[in-house]
């Protein structure tokens, strides 16, 4: 196997929060050698136009993901439970706010 050196440091996934209180959503990733460098690089790259009120960086290595070809059987158990939705139920005529 050809040996390549990594001169960039580890990869960090970047999450931005668009409005105070909202969930943090994935924006992209950056390279950095430590937490401080990671958050500064993420700021410079992903929030140049005031896109964020909050910013998280997470080591990419720490992220666990479902593979696309596994997704269907993986999520399958929740597919047939229509009674988890409110529209499944009969509401008597005249009943409000329920």
């Amino acid at each position: 196997m050809p040996h390549t050196t990594n001169t960039q440091g580890p990869l960090w996934e970047v999450f931005t929060q668009k409005k105070s209180g909202q969930p943090f959503t994935h924006a992209g990733s950056v390279h950095a050698f430590d937490k401080e460098m990671a958050i500064e690089n993420a700021r410079d790259l992903y929030t140049r136009r005031g896109e964020a009120t909050g910013l998280w960086v997470v080591p990419a290595e720490a992220i666990v993901a479902v593979q696309p070809d596994e997704a269907a059987p993986f999520f399958d158990p929740s597919d047939d439970k229509i009674y988890r939705y409110p529209t499944f139920y009969e509401v008597p005529e005249g009943a409000k706010n329920i």
Binding site: P23, Y83, Y85, P86, Y89, V91
Partner: peptide
Amino acid sequence: SRAMMRICNEESFHQRQGYEIMA
């Protein structure tokens, strides 16, 4: 706050199934 958003969405069937039993 974000936990409350998730919970409120999921709760929408809880109250209805109870009311359906009562009705």
